[in-house]
Amino acid sequence: MRFVLRRLGFYLVAAWAALTLNFFLPRLMPGDPASALFARFAGRVSPEALQALRETFGLTDASIFSQYVTYLRHVLTGEFGISVAYFPTPVSTVIGTGLFWTIFLAGSAVLVSFTLGTLLGILAAWRRRGWVDTWLPSTFVFLGAFPYFWLAMVALYVFGFLLGWFPLGHAYGDDLAPGFNLTFLTDVARHAALPIATVVIATLGGWLLTMRNTMIGVLGSDYVNLARAKGLTPSRVVLRYAARNALLPSVTGFGMALGYVLGGSLLTEIVFSYPGQGYLLVQAVRNQDYPLMQGIFLVITLAVLGANWLVDLVYVWLDPRTREAS
């Protein structure tokens, strides 16, 4: 319990750090992006709206400390200001439209990749110099060296454009109304298949190698040797006495890789015109939409921190040593 609470405290600190970074970044940068931002708005909105925008963005004549307090209050109530690219929609509404798709895409990709990679890693370590161990690590290291979005481009070109097996983009067909029915869900799966597959292919090798290498270390440990001496079958030794222990570093790595994989997944979204945060991020970059950009940064950071905490809970479940009351 103590461990879980300590980690929670850490994520709160990390969230606060991200919020603060987000606040000070525009103010620390050379030039004056705020003026540039408001110059873009000038003429398009009334002076009253402009003043309101200044306040939500926290750029008032007040002292920096009271600006900071105002900013924190706004963020905590879900107010990230007004988007430039989608004027005058609030940033929170814009982000809300794509949040589900991003979490769905990155979440399924990372889970599939981790599970598959870890299982293959166990297999590779178990049958050293066997077929899996000889070919899969190098193959997936090679595939993992391609930029995610490049794999996405090739996949889209080959399977979407040339062969026409998969749709060329978006999360579901234009002619379908979202709903919880088989037609719609099948269509969503068909649209997600290529993006998920490319992220899985690009990240599988990392999990495979991590698990394989830790497994090889654990298989040489005294407690595995004792398990062998006890006359247990090889499968029992490997799965029950080695794999669970070897999983621990992988789970720690899983939490840390989440942010990285999510980054790659955002780029993949762009290639597939998938309506998630990645697509919005490009729009924000192209339109110099700072409020949207910073909103996305914050939301994604908070999502990653939350996911990390869930990973910690899994870790506690796997390792009794973290469950101590002391």
Binding site: A17, L258, G259, Y260, L262, L281, M293, I300, V304, L305
Partner: peptide, 13 residues
């Protein structure tokens, strides 16, 4: 734990 790509984008922008 702060995701790198979004942070990089915000700073670079």
């Amino acid at each position: 734990v702060i995701p790198g790509l979004p942070l990089a984008i915000v700073i670079a922008a």
